[in-house]
């Protein structure tokens, strides 16, 4: 188990390292035929310019801007009308430049019966700008087991993914996971911001989870084993602070529906949600 986790983590980190080290990988190919290669006449810097003509690296006087952001897109209470409402979150954070970022995704929810954490997932990724609208990402995902006697077991995966804006203004995330219990997992999610007014925004979203094999402890079965769709209506009081209400439907499909039933859990449930979207 531990060695598997290590392997998965190592795979993810290796991928991230590969991404970050390929310096010229996204350069435009050929076609710059007009640039004569004989640019040998180096121009002196009269009066001492601080940037040598051949400088192509980072200039100490004007380094690229480092900045970060934190977005809790879902930060909400969910209720299906029975029992205690649960708390759930889904968020991201990043820090870095336009090109290179340390990127964190996290999500999780509390348990309906006991109130403790049911699941919690953390991804630590290296994110690299791929093109105008896309980032390519690689790193490690860990699913925590907070109560040793209950819930799904801990898993560690290597992650690679693509994140960005698809035509039509859809926020899209595609991720693949290797490791875990030897299965390959994939996740695709998309969301859209429909501006009813400039502050009242309807956000439908959908997520599909896919697996190549069984991981019974983690309630994973081959095929599309879990889907989630939701719609949230938020009011942006500021960009940072936007309360919302909404509806969410989560379902385990195929083999994993059976795994859930065996544990005495509903394989699908609809919930009404209310929360506050945070962006800072």
């Amino acid at each position: 188990m531990t060695s598997k986790a290590l392997k998965a983590a190592a795979a993810g980190l290796l991928l991230a390292a590969t991404l970050s080290s390929t310096a010229t990988w996204a350069q435009a190919g050929g076609g710059h035929i007009n640039h004569a290669t004989s640019a040998t006449s180096t121009s002196p810097a009269p009066g001492g310019g601080f940037l040598a003509p051949e400088t192509h690296g980072i200039d100490a006087e004007h380094p690229p801007l480092y900045f970060g952001a934190v977005l809790f897109d879902q930060n909400e209470v969910r209720s299906n009308g029975r029992g205690t409402p649960i708390y759930a979150w889904e968020g991201l954070a990043y820090y870095g430049t336009d090109y290179h970022r340390l990127w964190i995704n996290t999500r999780g929810e509390t348990n309906r019966e006991r109130g403790g954490l049911e699941r919690a997932e953390l991804q630590v990724l290296y994110s690299r700008l791929l093109g105008y609208y896309w980032d390519i990402q690689a790193g490690v995902r860990h699913d925590f087991r907070l109560n040793p006697s209950e819930g799904t077991p801990p898993r560690t995966y290597g992650v690679f993914g693509l994140q960005g804006l698809a035509p039509g203004f859809f926020e899209v995330q595609l991720q693949g996971f290797v490791g875990g219990d030897g299965v390959f997992l994939a996740r695709a999610s998309a969301s859209y911001d429909l501006l009813i007014t400039n502050r009242l925004i309807l956000q439908p979203e959908a997520e599909l989870n896919f697996s190549t094999g069984w991981d019974r402890d983690a309630l994973i079965a081959p095929g599309i084993y879990r889907t989630e769709v939701g719609v949230r209506l938020r009011y942006e009081i500021t960009r940072e602070f936007a309360p919302y209400i909404g509806y969410s439907h989560e379902s385990f499909n195929g083999g994993s529906a059976g795994l859930n039933r065996r544990l005495g859990q509903q394989p699908s449930q609809s919930t009404v949600v209310a929360g506050i979207r945070l962006f800072f």
Binding site: I33, N34, H35, Y132
Partner: peptide
């Protein structure tokens, strides 16, 4: 249009960084 092929006046050729040119093919 992206680079049109005209010289850019720089001592050495330079290439667009990724993400600076709008993907018009979309």
């Amino acid at each position: 249009p992206g680079p049109t092929g005209l010289d850019r006046g720089t001592p050495r050729p330079e290439h667009d960084q990724p993400g600076h040119v709008w993907p018009s093919s979309g």
